[in-house]
């Protein structure tokens, strides 16, 4: 469904993504694992088109020169030059790192803003769905986004992304800074959403263990390059992966 081919991203002369080719099929959960600065967020930005906006802004302000080469394909059509808003319309919704909620709007408003691309009926239906998957949000409806805990914020962020009617949901470090309990709640939620809404999910995370049970296929990034890939079982059996990403030696 969504595919990146030989994707390279340079910040000036620094190579942030090195020849990355990844693929996410229909109804699949794909994991992207790697340490800080491995290029996870850059990959997410390149897939969702936000990179084009960053590039444009840097260019106008005379800042860093950002170069992208390679190709991003959605259903075998190149979307490399597509604006982020159009990519979102095509169904690629990014739920960004650090969540970036609208802090001065209530939870309900955050979700409504997310429903910009949805029809009235879709928005209503999805809103009910989000409350069903994350019942914790029901009593927080009126609370401002800035006054939520990290886990609650992440639920709203995922809900907000769902409101945009994604076909493929990109989650950038959704578990960052959350308690183990909250992590497992969210991971279960993500799995339920993927199955019930028939969407694909690409999820990036530093630490593989909590996410691993739900991924179908995973890539491991190191310094901007995909050093390893495979199905869950293949990676599970790999001793290097075990040592580096599960803390088992």
């Amino acid at each position: 469904m969504l595919e990146a081919k030989d994707l390279m991203v340079f910040y000036e002369n620094m190579l942030a993504l090195n020849n990355i080719s990844i693929k996410c099929d229909d109804n699949q959960i794909v994991g992207v694992f790697g340490a800080n600065s491995a290029g996870k967020s850059t990959l997410m930005y390149a897939l969702s088109g936000i990179m084009l906006d960053i590039q444009k802004k840097e260019d106008m302000a005379g800042g860093e020169r950002i170069t992208l080469t390679g190709d991003v394909l959605l259903q075998n059509r190149s979307i490399m030059d597509m604006k982020p808003s159009l990519r979102a319309k095509a169904g690629i919704i990014l739920c960004p790192e650090r969540r970036r909620l609208f802090k001065e709007s209530s939870v309900l408003e955050n979700l409504r803003i997310g429903g910009y691309l949805a029809t009235r009926a879709e928005a209503k239906q999805t809103m009910e769905y989000v409350m069903e998957v994350f019942p914790a949000l029901i009593k927080l409806k009126k609370r401002l986004g800035g006054f939520l805990s990290g886990g609650e914020q992440q639920m709203v962020a995922i809900g907000r992304a769902l409101m945009a009617q994604p076909k493929i949901l990109l989650l950038d470090e959704p578990l960052l800074g959350l308690s183990p309990f909250m992590q497992s709640t969210l991971i279960r939620g993500i799995k339920v959403i993927q199955e019930e809404r028939n969407i694909s999910v690409i999820i990036s995370e530093q630490y593989a263990r909590p996410v691993f049970p739900i991924v179908d296929y995973a890539y491991i990034l190191e310094n901007g390059a995909a050093v390893m890939e495979g199905t869950r079982e293949e990676l599970m059996d790999n001793p290097d992966v075990k040592a580096a990403y599960f803390g088992v030696s």
Partner: peptide, 21 residues
Amino acid sequence: GLALQGMAQDERAAMMLGIDS
């Protein structure tokens, strides 16, 4: 109106939701 509000608070986050800035 809500889209405008979203943009006012975090332009890029709004962009990710399909709002053309």
